[in-house]
Simulated scan of single mutants.
Amino acid sequence: MSQTALPIQQQESTGTRKTGIMQILKKNRWGYLFLLPAFLIFTMFLWLPIVKGFYYSFFHVDFVKGDEFVGWDNYKTVFHDPDVGTSIKNTLYYMGLALVIGFWVPIVFAVMISELRKFQGIVRIAAYLPNVIPVVVLYGLWRWFYDPVGPINAAITTTAGGEGIAFMTDTAWSMISLVFMETWQQFGSAMLLYLAAVISIPRDWYEAAEIDGAGVWARLRYITLPSIKGLIGLMLMLQVIGTSQGYQSQMAMLDGGPNNATLTYALLVVKYATARLDMGVASAMGVLMFLVMSVLAIIQFRLQSKGEN
Rank of each mutant, 00 (worst) to 15 (best):
V295K: 01
G280Y: 00
I241Q: 02
L268T: 05
V270T: 12
S294A: 11
L268E: 00
Q250Y: 05
N259L: 13
K306E: 09
L277T: 13
Q248T: 13
L254G: 13
G242Y: 02
G246P: 00
T274W: 09
T274V: 13
I298A: 13
A273F: 11
V295P: 06
K306Q: 09
G256Y: 02
R302M: 08
V295M: 02
M253D: 02
D278W: 00
Q300R: 13
P258N: 07
I298M: 15
A261F: 08
V292Q: 01
M289D: 00
Y247A: 08
S305A: 15
Y272S: 07
F301S: 10
L291D: 02
S283Y: 06
V269L: 12
M279N: 12
M293T: 11
G256R: 01
L254P: 14
A282Q: 05
Q248H: 03
M279E: 07
L267Q: 11
S305R: 14
M289H: 01
M293G: 05
M285C: 01
M253W: 05
R276C: 09
A252F: 08
K306P: 09
L288G: 00
Q304S: 10
A282S: 09
Q304K: 06
G246A: 15
V295Y: 02
M251Y: 13
L277P: 14
A261S: 15
V287T: 00
Y247R: 04
K306G: 04
K271V: 10
S305I: 11
R302S: 01
A266P: 01
G286D: 01
G280D: 04
L268S: 03
I299T: 06
A261I: 07
G280W: 05
S305Q: 15
D278I: 04
L263W: 06
G257K: 04
Y272H: 12
F301E: 03
Y272G: 10
A297E: 00
N260T: 15
G242I: 04
V287M: 00
A284H: 07
I299V: 15
R276Q: 12
F290V: 01
S249L: 13
A282N: 04
T243C: 04
V270K: 12
L296T: 03
I241P: 03
M279V: 15
G286V: 06
M289F: 02
G256K: 00
M289Y: 03
G286S: 12
S294T: 12
V295T: 04
M289N: 03
T243G: 00
M289K: 10
R302C: 05
G242R: 03
S249W: 05
V295G: 02
D278M: 02
I298N: 06
Q300F: 14
A266M: 11
G246W: 13
V292G: 01
G246M: 13
L291E: 05
T264K: 04
L277K: 11
K271W: 10
A252H: 03
K306F: 09
